[in-house]
Design a protein around this nucleic acid. Structure first.
Lengths: 217, 217
DNA sequence: ATACAGCCTGGAATTGTATCCAGTCATTGC
DNA sequence: GCAATGACTGGATACAATTCCAGGCTGTAT
């Protein structure tokens, strides 16, 4: 399934979602063109065709405002869309192996909208151990993760090194990446990108503690 | 507010709701007429006017499919319950004076159900300062609070001493209560219940960090 | 080099839709 | 009896909206 929307296509899609949640009906070509600054409704039409081809919308021919959003992952506005999402999935623990993203392994949800965090959270990971205690992340906490590879220095990331998944603070100097724990008992991990493979699973965007009866200690 | 819809008006209204939940956009006059067996779109138009007059829909003039359902009761089958509470109120900051419980000072909500925590949370407080950093509560974090006076030793409480509100760990020995910060830079506060007044606002039951774009540091 | 997708302008044909006008028929309240 | 309201038919008009056609300009694959 080819799904990489271009930046412009994403703009159009976002405007459709926004319009539908705000007004209750989809926009016309002219409205899209006006909102995005096109001088021709045809520009909007072509973007709609592209979005339909990629499967994120469905066009109903010959119908005014004939745009549908198939059941799918969307975000932006909660507002009053009918499918009430179960919330953010809790997909596993860090330091207890690899988090598994398959739906069948998700047993719990935290009823928070994804866009409560910014950038928006894609899933939650339960953190094991105290390696990040000086960053305020304790054993049993849920870490909200935004799935991305774009990391800036000093941010907290979920990284995978040889099938080992950890939460660490990220620092890069040329080809050397340092993953630091926030706890004096743990030594930093230095990865040489030329010889070792480092995969970034995502960016830490939030922490939740005390949910599901785990309490506060 | 006169609101008794006639049977026919109810039919039209039901068809609008059904169409919107099924297709994602409202019907046209012609579609309503076809569905209800009218031979003229004008019949639908007049019903729409009546529904607009009675306030159950809103018509947007000059706009195709320009029908909106104002926030209101809906029915049929989409299994959509609207009594969606706004979530937990964020009622103020600790260490910046007294938290005010009046509704007019609540500007933000965290869209989490109260019973996500256990015992359930009644409100959220934004914590200022680092006095609880060793307990994983950092500056800017939201503390979920369960309003109660029943505290056990070692729990984290929101306490009020002479109009000063703080978050501390609670310890009681006879008539002497010790409120300890979780930070070596802060000295514990010892309260003699015979001479000083100590009011317990509630019990800390959870922590949320990173919401509302505050990010993770 | 050439082809192709993405992204856009400008114009125009055609159909979809909202909306008005003129009536008909029945029911209800005054 | 008469006005008011609800529930329509039938037809007409003007604008809203989709959709096609003919381009241009930028990249990135082949």
């Amino acid at each position: 399934m080819a799904r990489p929307l271009t930046a412009r296509q994403q703009n159009v899609y976002d405007f459709i979602v926004k319009t539908m949640s705000e007004f209750g009906y989809p926009p016309t070509r002219a409205e899209i063109a006006r909102a995005l600054g096109f001088r021709s409704p045809n520009a909007a039409e072509e973007h709609l065709r592209a979005l339909d081809r990629k499967g994120v919308i469905r066009m109903i021919p010959g119908t005014s405002r004939g745009i549908r959003l198939p059941a799918n992952g969307n975000e932006t506005e909660p507002a009053e869309s009918q499918p009430q999402s179960p919330g953010l999935p809790i997909i596993g623990s860090v330091a207890a192996g690899s988090p598994i993203l398959a739906t069948e392994h998700i047993d719990r949800y935290c009823p928070l909208p994804a866009d409560y965090f910014s950038p928006s959270a894609d899933y939650l990971l339960r953190v094991r151990g105290l390696s990040m205690k000086d960053a305020g992340i304790f054993d049993g906490d849920l870490l909200a993760v935004h799935r991305t590879q774009q990391i800036r220095d000093g941010q907290i990331v979920v990284a995978r090194i040889d099938d080992d998944v950890t939460v660490k603070r990220f620092q890069r100097e040329g080809n050397r990446v340092t993953l630091s724990a926030e706890n004096a008992d743990f030594a930093p991990i230095v990865v040489d990108l030329e010889h070792q493979h480092l995969e970034i699973e995502g960016l830490g965007v939030g922490v939740i503690r005390g949910g599901n009866g785990s309490g506060l200690h």
